[in-house]
Design a protein around this nucleic acid. Structure first.
Lengths: 306, 306
DNA sequence: AACTAAGTTGAGTAAAACTCACCAATGAAA
DNA sequence: TTTCATTGGTGAGTTTTACTCAACTTAGTT
């Protein structure tokens, strides 16, 4: 029993053509090939499928019976192939996104309505999670990550720069003083983000010199919003991405410190599991996001000055 | 697009196994082979079918959609294969028989009830026809032929001897005289069977010497029953197979002449279109007929002597 | 950290499936 | 009848393909 299954489309072609020769022509092969495939199929089935002379080709009873199944099988397979290939190029289906909590709330969710209006055949499932999840096990189509990617099996595309700034409320700074160097932070209540990717230390650059400072404080949390809230209330000081705090810097509710020190460059990435066969829904989503985010619009001061 | 179709069962096996390795084991091939077939299938479809890491294997959306079709297709094909192979060995289905008119009436039809009772899953279509028909175009499973086979593409099995005898009614012979040699037939009213296979002449043998006589008479017909009827009515004389006239010879309604001359040996054959893959229904039918006919029972005198 | 098991990759091999050329048989045309 | 075109079948040879084997990468486990 070598290759019964692959002979089925050939058998069906012969049935529909009514002759080996015509079927061969349609299949783009020679009649001898068709003849041999049918013969071998008959051998494997142990039944003759056609009564045949040089001029007549008639299905046997077994052939008649078998052809019903065979035609159906081929037809369904072709439908499947069509379904699988036709959806190529069309942005449709369910787009399962995994993205960080606060970023999603501030800069992803606000754009999603426009995206969904733009692509009515796409349905979005957004999972907001700051933890790095298993994209494959979770069957995520695309993930938004900030910082560096660890998973080398994933493909990443940079969407925007992610600038950070150390900042605090004017009230806090008035009370605790304004740090002039990173080392001064050891006397401050540094709020700490427990999922911080870069490690336990805060890194600073000045004239290509690297400075590492271990933040100390009385509040550790796994949610950036909570940190932001605490900053506004004047609990302490923290290194924050501009996409979260820029609006408060603009209004003066928070003020930047250590402005003459650089923080490490981070980026906002979109990642997806495969390089080959990227579904169109993923492509259009990433294109859309890149278009929306590449200007880093949140850093533009629209209105009051800091 | 090389061999999308034959990759489908492999894809289905992977879906059902949940991993390439297990699927490979079940299919009796290596995991690398499975991996390559799936990859090539994905290339041909232009879609990724599985999200996969070394530990997780999850269908993509396209894969999910495709697998519905694929499983169905394979399932139906398997049903077809099963249907085609399972009927092997079981005598069932429609048996389309082509047989000579008078032979069928006298020696085929009388046995058919027993045959049908014996094989309740067989349905018989009997076409009684003295003309030689195209077995393939007519989709006949088996043909009964008397004399020699001309169609070399058919397979033949001898069922019984077919002895012939020249005979006439006592009344005719009293009136026309009894021929002593074949040549005497030229003075007789030789009834002629228009479909006679051996040609227009009657052939006789005596001590290995062949004699050919062209019969002359005023009645030509394509039906043996009609000849028999005419013989009984004393119209003329004819060479007849014993399976038709023996019963009249037994009762004395017809009497043989030229008994010291031999007529050519004929045989009763069953023929069928193919040597390979003979359907069981055909086999059992021919076996049955051979069993019934091989004794040439019609030549046994049961009762009166001639 | 070592170990196990999963999927992938590349090279080499074995096995099909195919082509080509030729044959036999059939039916139509000359 | 003879010829001719066309059909399906065959055998040799070749190309393509599918496969195995071994090594590698990764992820989860002990």
């Amino acid at each position: 029993m070598k290759d019964v299954f692959s002979a089925i489309p050939i058998f069906v072609a012969v049935v529909e053509a009514g002759s080996f020769s015509l079927a061969a022509e349609r299949l783009g092969m020679t009649k001898s090939a068709v003849s041999k495939r049918i013969s071998s199929l008959e051998d494997n089935l142990g039944t003759r499928l056609f009564h045949r002379s040089t001029r007549k080709l008639v299905l046997t009873e077994s052939g008649e019976e078998f052809s019903d199944y065979a035609r159906n099988s081929v037809y369904i397979a072709q439908q499947g192939i069509t379904a699988a290939t036709l959806n190529q190029g069309k942005p449709k289906g369910t787009l399962k996104i995994n993205a960080p909590m606060t970023f999603s709330r501030l800069h992803l969710a606000p754009h999603l309505k426009e995206f969904l209006d733009l692509y009515p055949d796409i349905k979005v499932i957004l999972s907001m999670d700051d933890q790095v999840v298993d994209m494959i096990a979770g069957a995520y189509d695309v993930g938004i990550r900030i910082g560096e990617l660890k998973d080398s099996s994933l493909i990443a595309r940079k969407l925007a720069k992610c600038n950070s700034v150390v900042c605090a409320s004017p009230e806090y700074l008035q009370q605790a003083g304004i740090p002039n160097t990173p080392h001064d932070l050891k006397d401050h209540n540094c709020i700490y983000y427990s999922l911080f990717q870069a490690g336990v230390e805060w890194t600073f650059f000045k004239a290509d010199k690297k400075l590492k400072v271990e933040p100390t404080g009385n509040f550790i949390v796994n949610n950036s919003d909570a940190i932001c809230e605490m900053l506004l209330q004047g609990l302490g000081i923290c290194q924050m991405p501009t996409f979260i705090v820029q609006r408060y810097l603009n209004t003066g509710q928070l003020v930047p410190v250590l402005a003459n020190y650089d923080l490490p460059d981070h980026s906002i990435f979109a990642s997806y599991p495969e390089r080959r066969h990227i579904p169109e829904k993923v492509k259009v989503f990433i294109d859309f996001l890149e278009e929306k985010l590449h200007s880093v619009y949140w850093e533009v001061d629209s209105g009051k000055s800091s």
